[in-house]
Amino acid sequence: MQYKDTSDLEISLLLEAIYRKYGYDFREYSQAHIRRRILNRMALSGFEDIAQMQSMVLNNVPFASELLQDLSITVTEMFRDPAFYRSLREKVIPILKTYPFIKIWHAGCATGEEAYSMAILLQEEGLYDRTTIYATDFNQLALNRAKEGIFSNKLIKEYTSNYQLSGGKESFSSYYTSHYDNVIMNQSLKKNIVWANHNLVTDSVFAEVNLILCRNVLIYFDQNLQNKVQSLFYNSLINGGILSLGSKESIRFTDYFEHYSELDLKQRIFKKKY
């Protein structure tokens, strides 16, 4: 692939244009990541330069939505990082059991695998009936797929193995029915999940929750934006509430480090101090 060198200026102008026209704010995302996605799209769509792409973004809504999909990375798995889910069972569930009602927020839930994993875990721990799971993302297409709860059966082998490694207590196949090349998640898993469109950069606090999972979302943000989003999380958690990040994410470099204690440092599970 041959592409012309593109200045940072052109990319920041493009991001500015997307923000002003559509309200999606990528201006404080990881620059190296954004550059890579934009140059990929430019090559795929055969544009000569960013300026040409910018005019397309401004004048062609379907193209703009396509670019938004490129900038939202929905790669996910059920029971991704089994050791994390084991730690959830061992260290977080006992805390949740002390509450009469439980609210959980999956911020950046992509196509829903993480929320379904949580529903399964809560069912097995006998907590699902008193829980509401808010699963949010700013990518409406991903949310629509999450709501359907239909996944390709090519993935099931890996998910089953993740589930078993995570300390699953049943047979994983009891949570779905097969339908041609797909599996359909059980209706009983969906009943307490509320799917909602929420943008972590531009929307505000929406609930008082006991547990927040925001995994593999903050890696895409620069330090300043991470800090802002941490403030949103801090203000959404009840005292003693739990924050779970992705296995390579940290709150060490944010202003909120002091406000949490470590429940499991390796699995990035933190507890908001009273």
């Binding site: 990881s30 190296a32 990541h33 990375i73 890696i219 895409y220």
Partner: peptide, 8 residues
């Protein structure tokens, strides 16, 4: 500085 991603 480093960035990590889980892109495809």
């Amino acid at each position: 500085t480093f960035s990590l991603t889980i892109d495809e």
